[in-house]
Every structure is written in structure tokens, then in C-alpha cells.
Amino acid sequence: MKDRNNNNTFKHSPQKGGDSQNSASPQNGPAPGGPGGGPGQGPKVSPKEFVLLGIVAAIFIAIHFLYPPQSRAVYDVSLSYLQEMALIIPPVFILMGLFEVWVPKSFIQKYMGKEAGVKGIGLAFVFGTIPTGPVYIAFPIAAAMHRKGARLMNITIFLGTWAAAKLPQLMVELKFLGPSFTALRFVLTIISVVMIGLLVEKVITRKENKELVIEATD
């Protein structure tokens, strides 16, 4: 079962409890800025996550005594995933940092509102793939773009690519799921996002037109 899960090489010498310690120890790292969620300028990590992490760590230690045979497999798999993550995470996060510095969100807002037509669609894609934050950051940006006159379809494209085809995510996907999976999902997502954009726009404008007709006849 082990070889099915890992096609990567990893150390075949699990030091028993050592691994669980290993994956639990960084818990102490970010702690000073974390729990409490105070208004400090340090990065905030929700205490909930630390509780969860503690539970996982406790389970890791408990299974060593309760289910020794399975625990070896658990440690092996976790260690190999930790190694995979350790290779991919630093470049992805640094690139996210670079994007955030060089392509500020105000820049996106400024250009998305202005351009229409094919250029607008293209910009919606580009700005959708570049960003780094979670999608709920994109909603206010999308709303602002809409107020500035950006086409509804472009806003949907922007939101869709931001959600499902961001560059940092694609890089992680490339590493974990391979080039063919990533490339195919990317292409299909782009096609889908355009169609979703068209459909949403069509339904909404048709309804608006109907309402206008009703208002006019009243």
C-alpha cells in the first residue's frame, strides 16, 4: 500500500515517534504572532487552527502506541508529503509575494473597468490568474469593476479564473497532479469560465429587459 501512495523516494527509516514530533514541532514557530489573534502587526493565525493541529499531533502520538503497524504507514506518508510540500511551498509563496508587490490590487481595478471587448476579456483572464489572495478578496474588486462599467461577463471570468486557475495554485497542481491533469483542467476551466460568464450575463440582462418592458407597460 505504501508504494501505491508514494511514487517519490523518501527515507525508509521512520524513527517511530520522531516523525510525529517532526511534523508537530513547527507549531511552536509561528505561535508568538498567532494565538490570541491580537491586533499586532504580526501575521494572524486563528487559534482554531492551533487546536486542530494539536489534535492531529496528539493522534499522531496516540497511534504510535495504539496502532503500531498503521502508525508506521501514517508517519511514512506524512513525511513524504511534508517533503513534497517543503520543495514546492517556498517558490510558490515567494512568487505570491512578488505578484503582490508588483501587481497591486488597485492596478487591477484601474485597468479592468476601462477595457471592453476582447481586450477586456483578455485582461480579465490575466488579472484572474495573477492574484494571490483567497476569492473573497476578489468580490469587492469585482463589484468596484462593475460600478466602473466593466462588463458582467468579464467580471465573471475574472472571478472564475481567480478562484480556479490562479498561478500559485497551478504550480502546486503541477507538482502534485502532473502536467496533463493541470493543463487539461486549466484549458477546460478557461472554456467553462467564458461560458458561465456568457450564461450569467444573458440570464441577468434578459430579466432586466423584461422588467423594463413590464415597467414601461404599467
Binding site: 511534523s23 508537530a24 513547527p26 507549531q27 514557530g29 509561528p30 504572532g33 498567532g34 504580526g42 501575521p43 494572524k44 493565525v45 487552527e49 492551533f50 486542530l52 493541529l53 492531529v56 499531533a57 493522534i59 499522531f60 497511534i63 501514517v74 508517519y75 511514512d76 506518508v77 506524512s78 513525511l79 508529503y81 511534508l82 510540500m85 511551498i89 517556498p90 509563496f93
Partner: peptide
Amino acid sequence: LVKMLPSLLIIIGLVGL
């Protein structure tokens, strides 16, 4: 990294389990 690290470790642990 600091913000994501706990979640990353949790998911690594869950995948292992």
C-alpha cells in the same frame, strides 16, 4: 507561510492518517 503553516501541517497529518 506563517499564516498557512498550521493548515499545511494539519492537512499533511490528515492525509497520512
